[in-house]
């Protein structure tokens, strides 16, 4: 049902995404597509896949932005998927109960067997994380790879979301953000993890680790080397330096 579970419900599984190491390679997005098109929400169809306006269902998309002014601007890659919000209005607005948030781990899912495809949930998602399957007439979204993380047919190490296991830059971390001592929670604490659009009050479970400050000479390192010979640039002085340097081979 679409009443949200009590918020203190212990386990809050989610992702922590490190914007400081994300190189924007799209591996997470494609691997997500690959796993999920045969997974819990199979398929993730692609309309007109080889045509002029190909458009498919993806649970994860990677954006590229620049932020800051000319001088100290920087490029930031931003992978975006469902943040499994605690206060998930996408669930509350669902008239059928198809959208729901699991009490046991906080994962937000869509029950495709009863979804009527009214799309209201996608309107209610500030993050544009829900994607409509026109072909099946139902809403689909990131499942946090629910068919992997508990899957007894997979090796222990593989029981993480596809996007996490495939990220070459190790920029994606999965865990229980409800447990302050979990690795992910510690990461968030250390790196000051943020939740996008906090002001909307959706209380996302996922967190983004902001890019670290750049180090371009302002990190107390050396600024220049001291020439050992009169800096008039004359080669002779420079060479003189090594005349009596006899080193054994």
């Amino acid at each position: 049902m679409t009443m949200l579970p009590p918020e203190n419900a212990g386990k809050k599984l989610g992702l922590v995404i490190d914007l400081d190491t994300c190189v924007g390679c799209h591996a997470c997005a494609v691997n997500c597509k690959e796993w999920n098109t045969g997974g819990h929400s199979a398929p993730l169809p692609d309309d007109n896949p080889f045509g002029a306006d190909a458009s498919g269902v993806w649970f994860n998309r990677v954006h590229t932005y620049e932020c800051g002014e000319d001088g100290n601007s920087r490029t930031v890659h931003f992978p975006r998927s469902c943040l499994h919000c605690e206060n998930a209005a996408c669930v509350a607005v669902c008239p059928t109960g198809a959208s729901y948030k699991r009490e046991e781990d906080g994962i937000v899912l869509v029950n495709e067997d009863i979804c009527i495809g009214c799309k209201l949930c996608s309107w209610a998602c500030p993050y544009g994380a829900r994607e409509y399957d026109y072909d099946a007439g139902v809403m689909k979204k990131c499942t946090l790879c629910i068919d992997r993380i508990y899957n007894e047919n997979l090796d222990e190490e593989d029981r993480v979301p596809a996007c996490v296991s495939t990220c070459p830059a190790n920029a994606r971390h999965f865990g229980d953000l409800g447990d302050p001592n979990s690795d992910v929670s510690r990461l968030v604490a250390e790196r000051g993890g943020v939740a996008p659009m906090e002001e909307l009050g959706y209380k996302p479970v996922n967190r983004y680790l902001p890019p670290r400050p750049r180090r371009a000479g302002d990190d107390g390192g050396p600024q220049a080397l001291q020439p050992v010979s009169p800096p008039d640039g004359s080669a002779a002085d420079g060479l003189f330096r090594w005349i009596d340097r006899i080193l054994s081979r």
Binding site: N36, T37, G39, P43, D47, N48, P49, F50, D135
Partner: peptide, 13 residues
């Protein structure tokens, strides 16, 4: 060229 691709449908529950 297929007009729509439903790769994975065969694995759908």
């Amino acid at each position: 060229r297929p007009g729509i691709l439903r790769y994975g449908l065969m694995y759908a529950r």
